[in-house]
Write a protein that binds this DNA or RNA. Structure first.
Length: 626
DNA sequence: GGCGGGACCATTTTT
DNA sequence: TGGTCCCGCC
């Protein structure tokens, strides 16, 4: 079905045809917000075909960005360079590639995603006796709080009480030292991307002006997920209350408070921009029965936006809600199995099992697998895992950062897993020095002494070292690996190769779509590192997810387990008080509104030996007597 | 064999 | 907040 403004309802159409000035679209679950956002961007382009300014679409996940980019492309029939749909982090890397030299960053900076590498930087500070550091993990957490809240080193004293000034001074020094380490190594982590971009926009008016001239329209998806650091950047990009800022949000779906999201942010937006507000309460996903209990549940939250309209179901499907009580978790999981066994195998992918914690999910998964039901926990961010693809990955990383010892170390250890030969990083560096060649070439020369990697290493020297042609290198590497992988058809030898290969190509396609076929190596790597590598699911597989990862998704059959006090809401939330309970309630709201037909809610009277009452949310939804 | 006391457990994770 | 189990002591 083609997406046009004619298919929209009146509210959606008003939003999609919005032209100038600030607009806040309050979009409930299943309200077609992505369609509205997509049509709005296409509409702007069609109305101003001869203009040169760009439109920036900001999302909070890479997945959302890619999906929106695809839909816009379908609408406009071509890749329009005037539209950039990016995560805020990806957009910040753009700014830093262009202007980062003012802060001592080169455009080919690399991205650190692993906390271990970040802690290593703190340990370097310690080893060089620059700063006294006794708990690097704890300090890293504090640095991240500074990053997510957009706090500068010099602002820090205001956040500490007088008697804590000493720890304030330490953190100040660590923060500065850490930033310096990053710049010295030409590296950035997620937080510092936001930090340095904000610094540039704040302190260099010329750059801010240029960026604002290029991006005259800004559209933000899932604004409620914005943390303070991100909001500060948005404010620098869309400065006055006449700015063309188009924001889609739902204050009932703020569930990332621990990452700095806050219902207050929407209030701030309303105050800062005085936007016109359009509400989209129409829910095209959930059946009437589900919308009813969702409305009743969320009505118990006191800090919602005023005048928020209640959800209205526009789904044709007949909804079914079932509540089930069990004696303990084992029995509860048995009940879940009984539910899933009834569903034909080829419809299992329409099933989503949700729990508040991973602990419950892994118990359920183990039991399901025991009974021959394929079940996979769709987890947080994963990296490549197969030694073959990791070899390729570290090779091009080393090509981009030719002197990096840490990348060389990783490359050496990962090739050991392939050919069993231990290459010492010291020997590689020594060879490079003696023969006056790059470390990467020295590595290829030394690693090619083993039979299995010979072809790969020859290829590397020819394409990467001689011509810096990473595209050919990647393409032909996979040909080498396919052969190698076949030779060792024993799956344990090169585990997960096919998953990694699928992921690589999917991500690579997305990067080329957004950045063009001639994308440079450093941009390719930066985007690759910003993208999570999702697990490739088997067909006929039931998905198990936490509420947080299930956000934005939709399934015919949704099973929520563990709806008991201390589980959902969690023990911590109950202890913390009302603000946390409200966030838990929003989580529960998100969970139940994933269902487009069947919603199964279960709880046990006992978890891990402890007697628990049914979740208060069940009574609030009106499906259980209080 | 009976008892008192202490230990046990306790979240989510994008980029 | 909670029930249960195990240890040590009398």
């Amino acid at each position: 079905m083609s997406l046009t403004v004619d298919t929209l309802n009146e509210n959606q159409r008003q939003a999609a045809e919005w032209l100038d000035g600030p607009l806040l679209v309050l979009a409930g679950p299943g309200s077609g917000k992505t369609a509205v956002l997509t049509l709005r961007i296409a509409n702007l382009i069609r109305n101003n075909p001869d203009e040169t300014y760009r439109i920036l679409g900001v999302t909070f996940t890479v997945k959302a960005a890619n999906e929106m980019q695809k839909r816009i492309q379908e609408l406009l029939g071509e890749n329009n360079r005037r539209i950039q749909v990016r995560t805020i982090h990806s957009f910040c890397t753009d700014i830093l590639r262009q202007h980062g030299s003012h802060l001592g960053l080169r455009p080919d900076f690399s991205v650190i995603t692993d906390d271990k590498d970040r802690i290593a930087l703190l340990k370097e500070l310690k080893d060089q006796n620059i700063i006294e550091i006794d708990d690097p993990e704890d300090l890293l957490k504090k640095i991240d709080i500074m990053f997510t809240h957009g706090i500068n080193a010099e602002d820090l004293p205001a956040h500490f009480k007088e008697e804590q000034q000493e720890s304030c001074l330490i953190l100040q020094a660590v923060f500065k030292g850490y930033l310096q380490k990053l710049t010295e190594g030409n590296q950035l982590d997620f937080g510092s991307m936001l930090y340095f971009s904000r610094k540039l926009l704040e302190t260099m008016p010329r750059i801010a002006r240029q960026v604002k001239t290029v991006y005259r329209y800004i559209c933000v998806d899932e604004f409620q997920d914005t943390n303070l650091a991100q909001y500060k950047i948005l404010k620098l990009l869309a400065e006055s209350n006449t700015a063309n800022l188009f924001v889609v949000a739902d204050d009932d779906q703020v569930i990332f408070q621990w990452n700095g999201a806050d219902p207050k942010r929407l209030e701030a937006l309303k105050k800062d921009y005085l936007p016109k507000i359009i509400q989209l309460p129409e829910n095209y996903r959930c059946p009437q029965e589900v919308v009813d209990i969702a409305n009743r549940l969320i009505a118990h939250n006191s800090n919602r936006l005023e005048a928020k309209e209640i959800g209205v179901s526009h789904s044709q499907k007949q909804g079914v809600i079932k509540i089930a009580e069990f004696s303990d978790l084992d029995a509860e999981v048995e009940g879940l199995i009984a539910e899933l066994e009834v569903i034909p195998k080829n419809q299992r992918e329409s099933c989503l099992v949700i729990a508040r914690s991973n602990k419950l999910l892994s118990q359920a998964q183990a039991a399901l697998k025991n009974r021959g039901i394929e079940a996979e926990i769709v987890n947080k961010h994963q990296d490549f895992t197969s030694s073959l693809v990791l070899t390729l990955y570290y090779s091009i990383k080393l090509a981009n950062a030719p002197d990096s010892r840490s990348i060389l170390n990783k490359l050496c250890s990962v090739t050991t897993l392939i050919n069993g030969i231990t290459l010492s990083a010291e020997d590689v560096v020594a060879k490079a020095n003696v023969e006056s060649i790059t470390i990467l070439r020295a590595f290829f020369l030394m690693a090619s002494e083993s039979e299995s990697l010979l072809d790969f290493c020859m290829l590397g020297q020819r394409t990467l070292c001689d011509f810096m042609d990473f595209k050919s290198f990647v393409l032909e590497s996979f040909q080498c690996f396919d052969i190698l992988n076949k030779q060792f058809s024993d799956d344990d030898f090169y585990p997960d190769y096919s998953d990694d290969k699928v992921n690589w190509h999917r991500i690579s396609d997305d990067i080329h779509r957004e950045h063009g076929e001639g994308v440079s190596l450093h941009v390719f790597l930066q985007e690759l590192d910003l993208t999570p590598k999702s697990k490739v699911l088997l067909k006929d597989c039931v998905r198990l997810q936490t509420v947080h990862t299930a956000k934005g998704m939709e399934f015919d059959n949704v099973f929520i387990i563990g709806l008991a006090e201390d589980q959902f809401p969690t023990y911590f939330a109950i202890k913390n008080g009302d603000k946390s309970i409200q966030e838990e309630r929003r989580s529960c709201f998100v969970a139940i509104t994933r269902s487009s037909r069947y919603l199964y809610l279960s709880y046990a009277k006992k978890y891990f030996g402890w007697a628990k009452k049914p979740s208060r949310f069940l009574t609030e939804m009106g499906v259980l007597d209080g």
